[in-house]
Amino acid sequence: MLEIENASVSIEGTPILRNVELTMPTGAMIGLVGRNGAGKTTTLKTLIGLLVPQSGKVRFDGADITSTSPHRRAALGIGFMPEDRRLVPDLTVRENILVPAWAMRLQDAEKRVDWIVDLIPELGPLMDRYAPQLSGGQQKLAALGRALMVGRRALLLDEPSEGVAPALAERIGEILSNLKTEGLCVLISESNDHHVADLLDDVFSIERGQVRRLEH
């Protein structure tokens, strides 16, 4: 279980999140819906440790990880897919997926790559291509694969359907549906939940840095 307890976050003195409460149970897929600038990305960055709340806590399986570094959170099994993909242009798709494995010296990295390609077979023919040779949608799939390399217990996805064709957005939804049997807790932030609504166990809205649960 990954959760934020009463967290407030400011960036350069500007309040962004206000007393946010959000719980992602193990095995559940949670939606966080809001407009651009509402605080979705700030929430995810707080969960992965790139931002530290001025008040409140972040917990993972009951342990307080508020002060835990992003690197250590990744080692705990928390994966993150940023909205802008952030692939390394000089690396191939395979190498981009393996970057976090190299950083953490994971022993089963190649086996994990095989599992990722089984889950996302579209990546198979792309593994030796460099990031700039990919379409925007293909880069999204590669970024999802990289997040899955470490996201073995929790997966945070920042607008996975943003900027891709409707058919690919639906395909991403299918991939996420197949993940539901893996026992991860998954948080998906989107401007709307059109492509993933049927997958979600719970939905929260965020507006002006405040989160509330929606009827689902």
Rank of each mutant, 00 (worst) to 15 (best):
K180Q: 11
R146K: 08
L187W: 11
P166G: 13
A197I: 14
V196M: 01
T181K: 14
M149Q: 05
R146N: 09
R212T: 13
D128L: 13
L148V: 05
I175P: 00
R212E: 13
F204P: 02
A165Q: 11
M149T: 10
G183K: 02
G209W: 05
I188V: 15
R129N: 10
T181L: 12
Q210E: 12
Q210L: 04
L176V: 07
C185M: 12
P160F: 04
H194S: 14
Y130A: 04
S205D: 15
D158E: 14
S135G: 08
V196E: 00
E182V: 00
V150E: 04
D198F: 13
R153V: 09
K180R: 15
L134P: 05
L157W: 02
P160C: 10
S177G: 15
L179F: 00
R171W: 05
L144D: 08
K180P: 02
T181C: 11
H195A: 14
A197M: 15
F204L: 02
G173W: 00
A197S: 15
P160L: 09
L157F: 03
L199Y: 00
C185N: 12
G145C: 08
R152S: 10
V211Q: 04
A154G: 06
R208E: 10
L187A: 07
V186G: 01
G137S: 07
A143L: 05
L184Q: 00
L134Y: 04
E174S: 09
H195E: 14
A154M: 11
R153W: 08
R212Y: 09
N192R: 15
E162F: 06
S191G: 12
E182N: 02
E162C: 08
R146T: 02
V211T: 01
S189F: 06
L168Y: 02
I206G: 05
L148P: 05
V164Y: 08
L155E: 01
V150C: 13
L168S: 03
Q133H: 09
P166H: 12
L144F: 06
D201S: 03
A142F: 01
E182D: 04
E207M: 11
G209R: 01
Q210N: 06
L134A: 01
A142D: 08
N178G: 15
V150W: 12
A165N: 12
Q210S: 10
H194T: 14
G151V: 00
M149S: 08
G163C: 06
D201G: 09
V164M: 11
L141H: 02
A154H: 07
A154N: 04
D128M: 10
K180V: 04
G209F: 05
E170M: 14
E182H: 07
A169I: 03
G136V: 06
Q138S: 02
R153H: 13
V203R: 11
N178F: 03
L179T: 01
E174T: 09
A154T: 11
Q139E: 09
G173L: 00
H195V: 13
L187K: 03
Q210C: 11
L168D: 08
S135M: 13
L176H: 04
A197R: 14
G145D: 08
Q138A: 00
Q138K: 05
V211R: 02
G209N: 06
R146F: 09
